[in-house]
Design a protein around this nucleic acid. Structure first.
Lengths: 237, 237
DNA sequence: TCCATTGTTACTACGAGGGTAACAACAAAA
DNA sequence: TTTTGTTGTTACCCTCGTAGTAACAATGGA
């Protein structure tokens, strides 16, 4: 019940609407008072909410005394609702694409917060072929593997044992460079290196600054140089 | 542009959010002032909205002077958003089904408004086999044909010529009964018959009362009787 | 130096949604 | 018949999020 309400709210239902509709959909049919008791929505508000749900085509009524209400086939109504949302998204994507007007594209970008970093990384991984992953943290690799095939990945890390059994190319850093994974504290703020993705001309690094995650994307020929550096300098046999 | 904004709002974006995001997605990247000029959102609000979009993982920044903003791959972000909505709907349907507890089912139900009538009719048509359609209006039949096959439909009407060329069984009402399609005015309110669906034990009628559409669903053995009546009395050879 | 732009903060106005109280209409029970 | 409880409706308050406006320090180029 509570879960249903939460999900409905995610779909744009108001609190009262979600509670009334969930109750009605589960019980099949009910009077206003029953809905009030089961959902906790104030009794007088129930009528108001039911009218609104009726306008949206989700509830039908029998005008008796007391009036009885019923959710119109929840499955088909919600499916229809889903279709509308899907087509809305598709319309949005299409109309954005139509009027796209990319001018100069800045080669350096910062992304704040987890959500943005995930999106950014996903977008980069999807359009890239081969990718280098530099990290000391296995968790990041597991996320990457949801998007890319193992054979497209090369992992560079401090200890290859962490990534064994994955059928992935792994390279180990020389000892003198493995310190890049250690925390640094500057002016009381803790900085740590989390992850670096490199593909083609693009790199995307994730760092922890204090309590926040920061993503930095750099698209420059420089990247190729960095790749070479990795091979020439940082790696142990 | 305007269309994009409208669609985004349907997906839960606020007005300012939609306008800023649409602008940014179309232009690729822009400064706050450019966004302000193109979207009409107050310049100082642009910063606020951009931060909110950043938190949602849809915008990235380069901290220069002036700062430049960019929409993170709109297609993949919106696709992801769509997936979330779809899975939310599926969860809702599942958890409603799990806790369904249908008790006595009332045999008479009223549905107000176009949306509800559509949903109701759709639900009925989907679970029915053969169906009788009584109407004088071709438009309703076209909608029904989106859901049901022609061979499952029998149309009863005042003038079979309206429904020619559709490969559907048609029956014509005797002249003395064809008046049921005419408007009636009672106490200044206009009543008219629009559509009647009959299948098995269930009937669903649509009427116009004043300016509103009213749907009435009746699930009673009586319905079979009505069907017989149609055959015995109302029809012309 | 001056002036335009940038980024920030504070504040007002408004409406939607949540929440409470009260009341007439009605129906069943005493 | 009166009483009592329920039903459906109306009116109101409060809060919060969003739209919209004003003002100001910081920045940076001319």
């Amino acid at each position: 019940m509570d879960e249903t309400v939460e999900v409905l709210k995610k779909l744009g239902f108001r609190d009262y609407e979600a509670r009334v509709y969930a109750t009605l959909a589960m019980k099949g049919e009910a009077t206003a008072s029953e809905i009030h008791r089961m959902s906790g929505v104030p009794r007088n508000k129930v009528y108001e909410v039911l009218r609104s749900l009726e306008d949206k085509g989700m509830v039908e009524t029998v005008k008796s005394s007391p009036a009885v209400f019923r959710a119109i086939d929840p499955e088909s109504v919600l499916e229809e609702y889903k279709e509308q949302l899907v087509s809305a998204v598709d319309t949005a994507i299409r109309s954005i694409k139509e009027s796209e007007d990319f001018s100069l594209l800045h080669p350096v970008w910062c992304v704040r917060g987890v959500a943005g970093i995930k999106n950014r990384a996903k977008a980069m991984l999807q359009k890239s072929e081969e990718v280098f992953v530099i990290t000391a943290n296995r968790a990041y690799l597991d996320m990457i593997l949801k998007i890319k095939n193992p054979e497209e990945i090369t992992v560079v890390t401090d200890d290859v044992k962490k990534f064994s059994g994955l059928n992935i190319k792994t390279l180990e850093l020389k000892e003198e460079f493995s310190g890049i994974f250690n925390d640094a504290v500057i002016d009381g703020v803790r900085y740590s290196f989390e992850l670096l993705l490199i593909s083609g001309y693009e790199s995307f690094g994730v760092y922890r600054v204090g309590n926040e995650l920061l993503g930095v994307s750099i698209s420059l020929p420089l990247i190729i140089l960095f790749q070479k550096m990795i091979f020439l300098g940082l790696l142990a046999k």
